[in-house]
Amino acid sequence: MGSFKGHVLPGTLFLLVGVWHIWSAVVRYVSNPKTFRVQVWNAVPGFDGRLKHLELYVISIGAFIDLCIELLYSTHLRFFVDGVLNPSHMNNFEHSGMLLMFFIFSLAVLLSEKTRFLPLPEGALCLIAATAFCAEYLLFYFHSTTHKGLEGYYHTLLVIVIGLCILSSIAGALLPTSFPIDLCKGISMTLQGIWFYQTAFVLYGPMLPDGCRLSDSNITCHPTQSEVRGELLANFQLFSAVLVVLVGTVASYGFAASRYGHSDIKSSHSIQS
């Protein structure tokens, strides 16, 4: 069983990075479509380069803080009981493994960008990102905490969104000049962040559907129709999230094209009109 804070914190990280990735991909493409390349991370311009690696620091610091919460605070340092891993905190150990993968990813990118010790090409960094998402996918798919009923349905939809992150990351390594693929990665990360928030507010917050209640760390729905209504509501929530993200992406493209658009972009728009 999770918690409200346990979903909001990673949701915030995915949402921030995802929105920034969408905007950066759009700006890079409209600025010069011919030189566009897929990037696993995006630099923050201005400030004399002092905030260039801000995205990577947000990922590494956020993952490290969440890792400490899961591994140190939530377990109360009781890692072993009778010589084996504490069965009461297996979900915390699993979450820690996922967060460790994202921390390693951000550290690898920082070492590749700022030092000469790990000069990795962009394609390799995309595959490392895909590995981190794979670890997250396996965590939620083979979770030691049995997700059933409405809780299980929300986590199933989350796994689908994580799968999109994996596919877009791998495709970015294989097709390094594809703007749709780079944009798809930003969209899938944004959707993952939104869905973490949606799960937090529905399952552990004030939006729990009528007929369902949180009791003894389990969500039960009576009668059965309440669970069905909750699942249908989840479908509508995911559809709404996709719609909002797509509309926001199109709006950001239009704004970026008008402000930073390359001559090729503007000429193609004038020809179509």
Rank of each mutant, 00 (worst) to 15 (best):
S106P: 02
S106I: 10
L107I: 13
V109D: 07
L110I: 12
L110N: 02
L110V: 08
L111Q: 10
L111E: 07
L111T: 01
S112R: 03
S112H: 03
E113G: 06
E113W: 08
E113K: 11
T115F: 05
T115E: 09
R116H: 14
F117K: 14
F117M: 15
F117R: 14
F117N: 14
L118P: 06
L118C: 13
P119A: 11
P119L: 12
P119F: 09
P121Y: 12
E122T: 11
A124K: 08
A124P: 10
L125Q: 11
L127M: 13
A129R: 12
A129V: 02
A130V: 11
A130Q: 07
A130C: 09
A132I: 04
A132S: 09
C134L: 14
A135P: 00
Y137G: 02
L138C: 07
L139K: 05
F140H: 07
Y141H: 10
H143R: 07
S144A: 10
S144R: 12
T145E: 07
T145K: 10
T146F: 12
T146M: 14
T146Q: 15
T146R: 15
T146N: 15
H147I: 09
H147R: 13
K148V: 13
K148L: 13
K148G: 12
G149Q: 06
G149S: 08
E151T: 11
Y153E: 04
Y154N: 06
Y154K: 02
Y154E: 03
H155Q: 06
H155Y: 04
T156I: 09
T156H: 10
T156G: 13
T156C: 13
L158Y: 04
V159D: 05
V161F: 00
I162K: 03
G163E: 04
G163I: 06
L164W: 12
C165D: 00
I166V: 09
I166N: 01
L167P: 06
L167S: 13
S169K: 02
S169C: 06
I170E: 03
A171E: 03
A171H: 05
A173P: 00
L175T: 13
L175K: 11
P176Y: 03
P176S: 11
T177R: 11
T177A: 14
S178I: 01
S178H: 00
P180Y: 00
P180D: 05
L183Q: 01
C184N: 10
K185I: 01
S188I: 02
M189Q: 05
M189K: 07
T190M: 02
T190S: 00
L191A: 03
L191N: 00
Q192W: 03
Q192K: 10
I194C: 04
W195T: 03
W195E: 00
W195K: 01
W195H: 00
T199I: 08
A200H: 01
V202G: 01
L203W: 02
L203I: 08
L203M: 14
Y204E: 12
G205L: 04
P206C: 10
P206F: 12
M207I: 14
P209T: 02
C212V: 02
C212H: 01
R213Y: 14
R213M: 14
L214R: 07
S215M: 13
S217M: 15
S217K: 15
N218I: 14
N218C: 14
I219Q: 04
